[in-house]
């Protein structure tokens, strides 16, 4: 009985390891090769449209609402200490350091990540990837690579837009609605938010998240079982694994960046 469980555990671990190996292989093979800018640029541009521009709506709406909630909650808590002037820096720091990169990444995984997985999985199921190979085109370079690049580029941009919209939402609530003096809202914020320590670190986080989420999404699509059930399983895996990876990575990065402060 024990042996059975051990065997299953071993088997599962080995297959996870093998999957990680395959994933690393496709990451390497897609990105490392003689660059062909003339061919790749239009492909990457098109993917930036699908992955980035079409995600703007959910990013902006979510950012706005989260910023407004932060402003409201922050005010409610700080007013008891007489420190409601600090609402500006609270909203800004929370967004720039944590919420913008993390929440934007989670939303990105849900919207763009799952779409990527489904699209690539469908191309696999309808043998489009195989026919690309037969024609002599490497599907990793033509299909996977542009999507990877698009993900890396879009994620930090989306996170920054999220942060800005969130701060604006927070200012809407704090200044226009709750009556905090506009000058101190922004002045306090500018005093406490450091460009290099906070904004740049937030952007670095977003870049790492973009890498991880896009890599997972693309691999799940490429590696899935080419049936409709297989594709739906792969899409679910993308969202779950990406979300877990983002949250775990966030802890590691936060500890590295802000832990010593």
């Amino acid at each position: 009985m024990m042996l059975n469980m051990l065997q299953r555990l071993g088997h599962r671990s080995l297959s996870r390891l093998a999957a990680l190996g395959r994933a690393s292989q496709i990451l390497f093979q897609s990105l490392v090769a003689r660059p062909q800018p003339l061919v790749m640029l239009p492909l990457v541009l098109k993917q930036i449209w699908f992955v980035g521009v079409l995600s703007l709506v959910i990013i902006v709406v979510s950012g706005g609402f989260i910023g407004m909630v932060l402003g409201l909650q922050g005010y409610t808590i700080l007013v008891d200490y007489g420190s409601e002037q600090a609402v500006g820096q609270m909203v800004a720091l929370s967004l720039v350091r944590e919420l913008a990169p993390v929440v934007a990444a989670l939303l990105f995984a849900g919207r763009a990540g799952s779409a990527l997985t489904a699209e690539i999985g469908l191309m696999k199921a309808t043998e489009q990837l195989a026919s690309l190979e037969m024609i002599g085109v490497d599907p990793l370079r033509r299909i996977i690579a542009p999507r990877l690049w698009a993900g890396f580029i879009c994620m930090p941009l989306l996170a920054m837009i999220f942060a800005v919209v969130g701060i604006w939402g927070g200012s809407l609530v704090a200044v226009d609605w709750l009556g905090i003096y506009e000058g101190s809202f922004w002045a306090n914020m500018q005093q406490s938010v450091s460009f290099y320590d906070d904004v740049v670190n937030g952007i670095i986080k977003a870049v790492c998240f973009g890498l991880v989420v896009t890599w997972i999404a693309v691999f799940q699509g490429y590696d899935c079982i080419p049936t409709s059930e297989g594709i739906s399983q792969a899409t679910t895996r993308t969202v779950v694994y990406s979300s877990l990876a983002v949250l775990g990575l966030d802890f590691v990065l936060t500890a590295l960046m802000f832990g010593e402060l």
Binding site: M123, T126, E127, Q128, A130, S131, L132, M134, I135, G136
Partner: peptide, 20 residues
């Protein structure tokens, strides 16, 4: 070499496999 050989082959897949 495989790239060049594939120029001499054409394949019609079961599902057509047109690029959507």
């Amino acid at each position: 070499e495989l790239f060049e050989v594939r120029e001499r082959m054409g394949m019609l897949f079961q599902s057509g496999a047109l690029f959507t």
